[in-house]
Design a protein around this nucleic acid. Structure first.
Lengths: 157, 157
DNA sequence: CCCGATCAGTTCCTTGAGGGAACCCATTGG
DNA sequence: CCAATGGGTTCCCTCAAGGAACTGATCGGG
């Protein structure tokens, strides 16, 4: 019955996140929109993505409330895409992806982009800390326990 | 020529990360291995993934040095998969995915799993901090600058 | 007033990856 | 000797990704 597996219905926040941006173009689209590449033609050229697939992805991301489609010119009807708050928080996930990619795939050449932190003005990367005690919080620093939403079949949809 | 787009060759750490785990089953496989579901049959049953696709994914993840395939019994030849250091650091990415999924997709039911932080013993979630000044480091807190690896065509492969 | 350009898609076709079921092989336990 | 188990492989079908061509609205220029 189900052709492609539906990740959105799983009781797993990883699966539900992958349902939204789990196909590899979406993170790159979000990255581009984040750095100011926000129009259809620009995205298509910058990414080298098929126009068909780009249109599908944008429609999906708008539907998921990750991007917002806004008209910036009415008389020649022109549109651009912008990150919603939900989408902006996804960019945090991209920052962690960048961290891993920099460490394990960048090689000799070094990282393709650098981050300057507004608060301290320095070149920096992101680190994971505990929300409660501020200590480092890496995979080896935690235990995983069942939570209240474990048995729930489908949350909102 | 290229049928599916090769993300591994892009000068972008997001694209290169997505090249490794960018198809939606891989994060779930890593999650399972992380929590101790490490054998082929267990993974297949827990995820409901096609055996064919699971075999392909595992082969790819081992090839990428994210998982390690080890024999835990020789006479009936039996194998299990374990996270390498490279793979363990990917789990940090999953923790951030969980954070986003919990906030935006969990709904009424609440998060399906909880984390207890070893260091402080409390239930916690992960936060992003600056490696240099320890301040919060979210997408709106940084500028993105070109880095040394920008022009590089392909790093290691 | 018609021509070309620009933006933002849509349509059509081909190819190949995901899903599912069945099959295979080595070994062990009864 | 037979069934069961673990760890896959093979086969077939469908659907989604890629790519190129086409559409439609609008403007600017000759």
């Amino acid at each position: 019955m189900t052709q492609r597996t539906r990740f959105g219905d799983m009781a797993c926040s990883i699966a539900r996140t992958m349902d939204v941006i789990g196909e590899p173009w979406s993170p790159l689209i979000l990255r581009d929109v984040y750095v100011g590449i926000s129009r259809f033609e620009q995205l298509q050229e910058d990414l080298g993505i098929s126009r068909k697939v780009l249109a599908e992805r944008l429609r999906w991301l708008v539907e998921q409330d990750v991007l917002e489609r806004r008209e910036y010119s009415a008389k020649p009807p022109r549109h651009e895409y912008a990150l919603t708050p939900k989408g902006t928080e996804l960019v945090a996930l991209l920052m962690v992806m960048v961290r891993w990619g920099d460490r394990w795939t960048a090689g000799e050449a070094g990282p393709p982009v650098l981050y300057r932190h507004h608060e301290c003005g320095r070149l920096a990367h992101v680190e994971l800390r505990c929300s409660e005690c501020d200590g480092p919080m890496e995979p080896t620093d935690i235990d995983v326990l069942p939570g209240p939403g474990l048995a729930a079949p489908v949350p909102t949809s």
